[in-house]
Amino acid sequence: MADIEDSIAATRTETLEDVQARHRKEVKELTAKTTTLKKSVGKGAGDKKKKKEITEQIALMEAELSKRHEQELAAAEQQTTESLAQEEGPEQPEAEDASAALEDLSISSSPAPQQGGKKKPNRQKLRKERKAQQFEEMRRQAEEEAANTENTKEIEDAAIAKLIEPLALSIKQIPPDGHCLYNAVAHQLSLHDQSDSKSYKELRHIAAEYMRKNPDDFMPFLVNNQGDCYNDAEYKQYCNTVEETALWGGQLEIQALSKALGRPIHIVQMGSPVLKVGEDLAGQPLTVS
């Protein structure tokens, strides 16, 4: 539910090694951040609710980072393959190759004996042949890896289908655009109560307005490019972006929607139990994946 499109586009300016290095740094930063959040909660009875909310936020943050890293790596690997393919395009002859061509023309008009009767090797041709061999070997290896790699989308869909089977639920596909979280919640609301139907625009406004009124619940989880927590102006701009643009909804927006609507939101995901946000709320749960 993160802003995957923007992050994938950014990888086009990075090498695969750059992406991997950045991922290691981001994992380290997230670990430090979650550790700080865990330590910020006391051990008193009144802190149990806050601890539970922070645990939910951390789980969502980790799942979102993992999903984004997976897609960025796939994009970077594809970009590397495309770059190698482009190198196979036509090359301009080097000065040495051009001289060799002129030499061949002069020979045709006035043959001169060649040592051992052998022609001088064409370096450009040899270089292109080597590149072609290297590229073909890389393509073959990529095909073998792809053949031996399981389809993660199919595996994830099958796992989610298995999880929701005992819940008597079925999957409703939502277009994967920046509004998908809000459209999924809107669909759930209409299923439970058609009189409570809302558009994605209305839900964006509801989430943004709740975040504006409760900054202390969200600001600690937002950092700028320098790694510092948002200030008031940055936080205000973030809320405006949530309401007015197609920014993908993430863990903060799920929390805001749950609180504002007074309903728990259950998140079904592969490899872990159903994540329940707003479990203390009395409304009927909305289930998304």
Score class of each variant (00 low, 15 high):
2 A>P: 09
7 S>E: 14
10 A>N: 11
14 E>N: 11
17 E>R: 12
18 D>P: 06
18 D>T: 12
22 R>W: 07
28 K>M: 07
34 T>A: 05
35 T>A: 07
41 V>M: 01
42 G>S: 00
42 G>H: 09
45 A>C: 09
54 I>F: 03
56 E>G: 12
56 E>K: 04
57 Q>E: 14
58 I>K: 00
59 A>T: 10
62 E>L: 10
70 E>S: 14
72 E>A: 02
73 L>Q: 14
74 A>T: 15
81 T>W: 07
81 T>F: 08
81 T>S: 08
85 A>V: 15
100 A>P: 12
103 E>G: 09
104 D>E: 13
115 Q>L: 13
123 R>S: 14
132 A>K: 13
133 Q>L: 09
136 E>T: 13
137 E>V: 11
137 E>K: 12
143 E>Y: 05
144 E>L: 12
151 N>I: 08
154 E>L: 08
162 K>C: 05
162 K>I: 12
164 I>Q: 03
177 D>C: 04
180 C>E: 01
191 L>W: 03
195 S>F: 05
204 R>P: 01
212 R>F: 00
212 R>M: 08
214 N>R: 03
222 L>M: 07
224 N>H: 06
225 N>V: 11
231 N>Y: 02
233 A>F: 02
243 E>F: 01
244 E>L: 09
245 T>C: 01
247 L>Q: 08
248 W>V: 00
254 I>S: 00
255 Q>V: 03
256 A>G: 02
264 P>A: 08
265 I>A: 00
272 S>I: 14
274 V>A: 08
287 T>K: 06
